[in-house]
Design a protein around this nucleic acid. Structure first.
Lengths: 194, 194
DNA sequence: CGCGTTTTGTGATTGTAGTCACAACCGGAG
DNA sequence: CTCCGGTTGTGACTACAATCACAAAACGCG
């Protein structure tokens, strides 16, 4: 498949207002990168300069709590975007790290280069807006999940709302997303079988 | 003060790219509303149709967990915006309720009427984008707060990062924001004095 | 001022999630 | 097949947050 058509092929349904020509503009600025399992797309403390589109593989967004324990705030799969907008917008060191959970292929783009396009192509600005909406929705979901007290409730919620996560992600990482211990998750799963 | 100048006066610093004329366009569509303590700007189950700017007073955004206990996901004070974008964008019943914590005055606007303006005034679209960024940042902060295990850590974090909340909000509501019990918060505060 | 309502503090009790330690399991490489 | 690293399950123990019940304090209001 020609690289230049990737974005258009994959995103025309989700963002119908953007034309093939506009996707091509982005495609031209993007480059394919291979990221190995365990390697980072963005590291703690670095200022985000890139955004990316996940072609294959999966990623976790992690933060460190006060006891230096890793917590996961979000997952990303094929056809999702990778970005830490907060770090980029504020030019501030990232509190978030984005790490591949398996070998992955992404289409990476320098965010700075996209800015000039916005004035000429308002559609891209709208996509940006929609992107923020999706990010905010995911965060809301996580906030709600964390309002649930017991590991069992949290796990059940994830099963109902995000079965894809249950299927693709290791229990260790699911526990980190639920902000509970690995053992507590194991016991919650046990009590679901009874 | 003339109502028509409110937005411009209060927001020109925060959103400098928007002109006085553009604020006036919004001001014309907005109307002043008084909301009494305990009354809702948005109720659970309703589809959000309005956005608002807080002139005075304070608000809480609440959700209900599976045990029907109220949790607070966000506060809003003077000069903040009130909105549940998720409900409006998806035309879906709101899982969030927005309630006044004290008698308040707001400038309310029908979101639908704003859409046509975006095509003519890209600045307003940029403001919208910035708004989403701010919303997302607040959510990130809350996600981090909830990664902290002990009530003491959560309370200390709030003191450092959001002293305004500590000062203005009742302990009962702070506890609901920290996702801990009122009693646990009381004890955390006690242990800070030793 | 005193009354009632709301908010906050504190004690006793209980449940349960975290932690540690270890065993079982699984998958890949040789 | 065996060996190995990483992942998952399980038991025992402990700490501590939730809950309930009540007391104290603060606040509004007549």
């Amino acid at each position: 498949m020609k690289q230049e058509l990737q974005l258009y092929q994959r995103l025309q349904k989700k963002y119908p207002r953007v034309t093939e020509e506009e996707w091509r503009l982005l495609d031209v600025m993007a480059s394919v990168k291979h990221i190995k399992k365990g390697d980072a797309f963005l590291k703690y403390g670095k200022v985000a300069r890139f955004s990316a589109f996940v072609i294959s593989g999966s990623f976790k967004y992690t933060i460190l709590d006060e006891d230096s324990q890793e917590k996961i705030i979000k997952f990303a799969f094929a056809d999702d975007f990778l970005a830490n907008c907060e770090s980029y917008n504020k030019k501030a060191p990232s509190a978030v790290s984005i790490v591949a959970l398996e070998d992955a292929v992404i289409l990476r783009i320098n965010i700075k280069k996209m800015q000039p396009l916005y004035n000429l192509h308002m559609n891209l600005l709208h996509v940006n807006l929609q992107l923020y909406q999706e990010i905010s929705e995911q965060q809301s979901e996580h906030q709600y999940l964390l309002s649930l007290k017991s590991p069992l409730q949290r796990y059940r919620y994830l099963m109902e709302r995000r079965p894809a996560i249950i299927q693709k992600i290791s229990l260790t990482n699911i526990a980190r997303y639920l902000y509970i211990s690995r053992e507590a998750l194991s016991r919650a799963r046990l009590s679901l079988l009874k």
